[in-house]
Design a protein around this nucleic acid. Structure first.
Lengths: 113, 113
DNA sequence: CCTTTATATACCTTGACACGTATATGCTCT
DNA sequence: AGAGCATATACGTGTCAAGGTATATAAAGG
């Protein structure tokens, strides 16, 4: 299962992570809130745990799962170069719109310059 | 292939995206730089194009592919709540380390309580 | 026109993984 | 100790996507 990207490719796992962002939850609580069968929850939690996305502590018969930040930070880091890319493009768009501004007559433009 | 997350789960596709972040490239250039077979490149580019990650323009027999920002911005948006989470946790870690500071003995702790 | 170059598509095979159902493990309380 | 709840694991099955090889499409240039 290698990479963090493969882990979060699965919709149910993303749902679990989103649930845990607010506070820790037991398996049963996750099961109920997401309406998914208990073995499914346990199996996804296993994957998430082995990949370091979550950790669990024992509370009697329950297990409480909570988020760990590192793997998602890795995703965030991978995105960094692209953020630079698209903010550069926003700038270009602005400049483009500025140019539009001063040369927009109410009527149609002709094609040639 | 549904979601943007599944698209970027594939390592070769991530490599292609990373290549394109600096500037647009033809299929052949991608093929050479990433040392992957041409059909593989074309197939991944197709997936990326249909998902809106890239667009292409024709230049004689070549096709030039360039990045489009939206799908990755979607990933970025999904990460937002988690960023809040882990910055909260960095604060907690700092406080924890502060507490350690003043109570760290040099010797081992014993097991029993 | 024919050849070469660039890219796309078709077909097949293989492997991974998500799911359901059943069962195991383990803790709690009486 | 036994019943009941909470969670984990085992096993069988189907689906789907990635890779390889071969071939198709299309433009360029002699």
């Amino acid at each position: 299962m290698e990479s963090v990207f493969e882990i979060i490719a699965e919709p149910n796992r993303r749902a679990i992570l989103s649930l845990l962002v607010s506070s820790q939850q037991s398996v049963g609580e996750i099961e109920r809130q997401l309406r998914m069968p208990q073995p499914t929850v346990s199996k996804h939690l296993r994957v998430l745990r082995e990949a370091g996305f979550v950790e669990s502590t024992v509370d009697a018969q329950r297990r409480l799962y909570r988020l760990k930040p590192e793997p998602l930070q890795e995703v965030d880091a991978w995105l960094a170069p692209f953020r630079r890319f698209w903010s550069a493009h926003l700038d270009a768009l602005e400049r483009h719109l500025d140019r539009m501004e001063q040369s927009t007559p109410t009527k149609r433009k002709r094609k040639r310059r």
